[in-house]
Design a protein around this nucleic acid. Structure first.
Lengths: 238, 238
DNA sequence: AGGTAAGTGTTGTCTAGTTGTATAATATAT
DNA sequence: ATATATTATACAACTAGACAACACTTACCT
């Protein structure tokens, strides 16, 4: 854990510059030589700072070309209608999704409680990772009542988003009923999925989505990479 | 406090060497390892002596680089016509300048107010550090109206001083209209530029320079290293 | 036009040297 | 006995320089 080293102050200065859009996403940073001259330090010290930014996913370096600012930390509005893909597309980024598990099994306690189902009823369990510009943003596990959406697993293979898959199963609209947020540390498995360091901060969101009649349709848990996502509370959240 | 410790004799020997100009201002002392070998003592003992000299402001050490002899504090007259390079040359020191940033961008609030320009007008922003005998004396940020000096950034690359660059752009003379002085503490980035400790005292001067007609031509902020510069108010200041 | 070679600039990596810091052991004086 | 000064060792952080690997640009040749 670095405390007051030179490279940490340089890294935080560069973080500021990127946050202030002095260097916009896609831009090339000044060369390592220029930065080392600007800060009056050796190039290796600058490289240490840049490595820190690269570690956090803020920049990416290409040998022979330069160091480039990656997409900025994503603003993720916490409203009644959170649509990951739509949200991403609006901010001009390429959404992606990788499903690592999709099966139907008897509901466990947490899921039954969240969905208001009797114990042991079959549910679809879906796990995966969401990407923005090929960078993992969040890992998720969603539980759906299998009885209501018998063809959901099939639909998910063809559709690009959960929203679309649910629509294919006859659910045209749903809203978020409640959300619980907790700060956690990434365990090794989660760290691997999100491509962050084990022990890095993670925001865990546990939410229940309901249809227009208020009947629960999804019990979802999402782990956001703390460095890459900032959750914002929309005004209509109330 | 004991007078006859080993490190005190070493310190006084080094003091002598510096006073005799055996090590001139700006020079690097022999490494701690060399000194400890020369005096036949442990490196820590030499370090204790060097710490004493550093306390007295005679030397300054840079990790990884060495221990350097400091120059004596410089008198900086605060008059109507402050010319850094000229002032330095007169006192027999080698002036230097390093520009760390030179770009043209829309004026912010402070600059527009200082220069009396409408908001958003393009200005040249120049940041850098001034040296005397290879020691950083002051960090500066100057803002010039880009419309009046379109070729200033080019001129600065060839000319050695701001005065000369402005002359190349057609401004033969200018004077200081007003100056505001504040005592501040060095933030980490500034400390890096001036090679002082973060939190060390710094004198900040905010000044506006005007041409013969009284039209503002420069809005400049300068941060002086408090330990190395003392500002003097000249008689013609009024 | 198009392909190739040369040249320049940038990041990646390696080796070596220097100061900063922490810990512990030993001698010496009061 | 108890500080204090000095020695001893080890590692971390930073500097310095050199060279390799790679990207991009330009000039040149066919």
């Amino acid at each position: 854990m670095p405390r007051d080293t030179i490279w940490t102050t340089i890294a935080s200065k560069l973080r500021d510059d990127i946050a202030q859009r002095a260097y916009a996403p896609g831009d090339r940073l000044p060369t390592e030589a220029e930065l080392s001259a600007r800060f009056g330090v050796n190039r290796h010290t600058v490289r240490r700072a840049l490595a820190d930014l690269a570690d956090a996913g803020l920049v990416q370096s290409r040998r022979g070309a330069g160091v480039f600012v990656m997409a900025r930390p994503m603003d993720y509005p916490l409203g009644r209608r959170v649509r990951f893909h739509q949200n991403l597309a609006e901010s001009g980024r390429t959404p992606g999704r990788k499903i690592t598990r999709a099966e139907t099994c008897p509901a466990n306690d947490a899921a039954t409680e969240g969905l208001g189902l009797p114990a042991g009823v079959p549910v679809h369990v879906i796990e995966g990772v969401s990407f923005a510009d090929d960078q993992p943003m969040a890992a998720f596990r969603s539980v759906f009542p299998a009885g209501r959406f018998p063809e959901l697993l099939v639909a998910l293979q063809t559709e690009t988003s959960v929203t679309a898959a649910l629509a294919a199963c006859g659910l045209t609209d749903y809203t978020r009923r409640d959300t619980r947020l907790t700060a956690k540390l990434a365990d090794p498995v989660l760290a691997l999925a999100l491509q962050i360091r084990p022990g890095a901060p993670v925001l865990r969101s546990v939410a229940v989505n309901v249809d227009a009649e208020g009947i629960p349709v999804e019990y979802g848990t999402t782990w956001f990479a703390g460095d890459r996502v900032s959750l914002t509370v929309a005004a209509d959240q109330a």
